[in-house]
Design a protein around this nucleic acid. Structure first.
Lengths: 141, 141
DNA sequence: TATTGTTATACTCTATAACTATA
DNA sequence: TATAGTTATAGAGTATAACAATA
C-alpha cells in the first residue's frame, strides 16, 4: 500500500499543500487561490469556466473570488453581451500576488527535488505533466 | 504556477485521494484508513507511534482506530508493561481489508500510469520514493 | 510532573440544493 | 425552461486545548 504511486501522490500532495499554506499565509492567500491566480494570468474568464478548469463546483469559485476581491487581487466584470455572466480578471495587485505565489511554488519545488539529480527531476516533471494532461482529457473531469 | 511540480503534486494528490474514496466506499473504509492498515501490517504499534508515522495528531488516530475497530479491522491491546499505552493490531478481517485496499491502490496506479511507458513509470515510482524517504528524515515531520 | 490516550471544539475545504436574475 | 451566479447548509478531515489515567 504505502509503496504505491497513488498512495505517495496522495501523501506528497498533502505535504505540498501544507507548504503552500505556510508560504502563502503572509500574503493573505491560501492554497486553493493559486489555481485561480494561475488561470487568470490570461484573458478574463467566466466563473463557471474557472470552476470547470479548476475542477471545483460553482459555489467554491464564488467563495474564492469573494476572498480574492476582498484582497484587491481580482475584479468581476459583468458581461454586457450576456448579463448573467461575470468575467473575472486579475488586478495589478493580483498579478503581483500571482508572481509571488509562483515564486513560492518554485521554492517548494527546489526543496522537494533536493534528493533527485537533474535527470530524475526532469523525468518527474515530465511524468507529472503527462499524467496531468491525460487526466485533463479524461471524461471524469 | 500550474506547471510546477508542487502544484501538480497537490492536484494529483487530490485526484488520487478522490479515487481511493470511490473505491474504498464499498469496503466501508475511507482514504485516511489506508495508512493505518498499511502500518499495522507488521507488529502491533502504540497509538502515538502511529500518529507520528502517519503525520497526524493523536486525536485523529483515536478517531480512525474507533472506526476501524467498529469495522472489526483492528484491535486495541492495553500494554501490560505501561498501562497508559494501547497497542493497535490488525484482526484477520483487517488483513483482508488491507490487501483489498492495496489491490485498489494498484488499480489506481495502473490507470494513472497509463500515459507513461515502462521507463517513465519506473522513473516516477523511484522519484516519488526518494522524495518520500527524504521527507521522512526531514525534521519537519 | 510528564506522557498516553481521550474528548470537545473549531476551522478549512468541498459538495449539494434551493434560490435570483437573466436568457 | 435553461443557464450563470449566489446563498445556506452539511460532511469530511484536521488541529488545538483541556482532561483522565498512569508513569
Amino acid at each position: 500500500m504505502t509503496d504505491t504511486v497513488s498512495f505517495r501522490l496522495a501523501k506528497l500532495g498533502q505535504l505540498s499543500t501544507a507548504r503552500f499554506a505556510e508560504g502563502l499565509a503572509p500574503l493573505g492567500l491560501r492554497p486553493r487561490h493559486c489555481a485561480v491566480l494561475g488561470l487568470l494570468s490570461g484573458p478574463p474568464m467566466a466563473q463557471l469556466e474557472l470552476a470547470k478548469r479548476i475542477g471545483v463546483t460553482a459555489s467554491v469559485v464564488v467563495d474564492m473570488l469573494d476572498e480574492l476581491e476582498a484582497h484587491g487581487a481580482v475584479r468581476r466584470i459583468r458581461d454586457t453581451a450576456d448579463r448573467r455572466r461575470q468575467l473575472a480578471e486579475l488586478t495589478s495587485r493580483g498579478r503581483t500576488l500571482s508572481s509571488q505565489a509562483t515564486q513560492l511554488a518554485r521554492q517548494i519545488d527546489a526543496e522537494l527535488l533536493l534528493p533527485l539529480n537533474a535527470v530524475q527531476s526532469k523525468g518527474l516533471r515530465d511524468a507529472l505533466a503527462l499524467i496531468t494532461e491525460a487526466q485533463g482529457h479524461d471524461a471524469r473531469r
